[in-house]
């Protein structure tokens, strides 16, 4: 059986280096298979997260040859196996060990977003009538598997580490799913502007490019949210009216 070399980041928050492991490759293998093989044969303590192995849970995020990927959906026959394949952890989050990062920030950010708040039911039995077309729009965002690859590649987080000021593409997709939900009545525009820092996004679309679920993050989620914020909080006419009606412009 042919062999390939994997250059895997080993180490923790304080120190580490790439270590080369050679392993056999067979038909249809994905990067995660190679990691598991290396784990079983040579490095029992090599740390990586995974669950479903079918692109549905978003646990096995890493950078393969420098590209943010789900290891379970990255086929070896799509990679140049004549050179070592580098596998390293995501860069936007603190490293715990090897391929594992501390992604808890994403969970904390999510909790700060105002929760779903539906309108009263349409029918006496507590149910709603919704058209499929209205559902389709949010279903795109609800496909998100929370792999956080978009957060990993977002330069506002990755290079500028503005985690305290900007919630990142994943969380903005979540806000979009809530804001565009046909039943939701909450208004999150002021939060988007201030607490969520939507202005930091300068629509380079890196997040859209790496999304394994092919969610059109920038065009369908972030830009419409930016437009809502502008419409409500920056429109000159409404600003003018607000000024004279003595409402504080927040």
């Amino acid at each position: 059986m042919p062999k390939a070399t994997f250059s895997i980041w080993r180490g923790n928050g304080s120190a580490g280096q790439f270590v080369d492991y050679e392993t056999e490759v067979s038909d249809g293998m994905v990067v995660l298979d190679a990691i598991h093989q290396i784990q079983a044969e040579k490095a029992n303590d090599l740390a990586c997260r995974w669950n479903c192995k079918a692109g549905k849970c978003g646990s096995c995020s890493a950078e393969v040859n420098g590209m943010p990927k789900l290891m379970c959906m990255t086929r070896l026959n799509d990679l140049p196996l004549e050179k070592p394949i580098t596998v390293e952890p995501m860069k936007s989050f603190p490293l715990i060990k090897d391929l594992i990062t501390d992604v808890s920030w994403n969970y904390r950010v999510k909790k700060k977003i105002k929760k779903f708040n539906p309108r009263p039911p349409d029918k006496a039995d507590g149910t709603w009538l919704i058209s499929q077309a209205d559902i389709d729009r949010v279903q795109e965002f609800r496909k998100c598997i929370e792999c956080f690859l978009c957060q990993d590649v977002c330069h506002v987080l990755r290079e500028h580490t503005l985690h305290e000021e900007f919630i990142g593409p994943r969380a903005l997709v979540y806000v979009a799913a809530l804001e565009m939900h046909p039943l939701d009545t909450e208004n999150r525009n002021k939060d988007l502007k201030k607490a969520h820092g939507i202005g930091y996004c300068n629509i380079t679309k890196c997040c859209t490019n790496v999304c394994p679920e092919e969610i059109t993050i920038t065009d369908n989620a972030i830009i419409p949210l930016k437009e809502r914020v502008v419409d409500e909080l920056y429109d000159p006419v409404t600003r003018f009216i607000r000024l004279f009606s003595n409402q504080e412009s927040k």
């Binding site: 539906p118 039911p121 149910t127 709603w128 009538l129 559902i135 279903q139």
Partner: peptide, 19 residues
Amino acid sequence: VRELEAWGAAFDRTKDGRI
């Protein structure tokens, strides 16, 4: 199931808008 909808689940719909 109806409770899940009240918590935000977006199920596929029938032509008349039900789950």
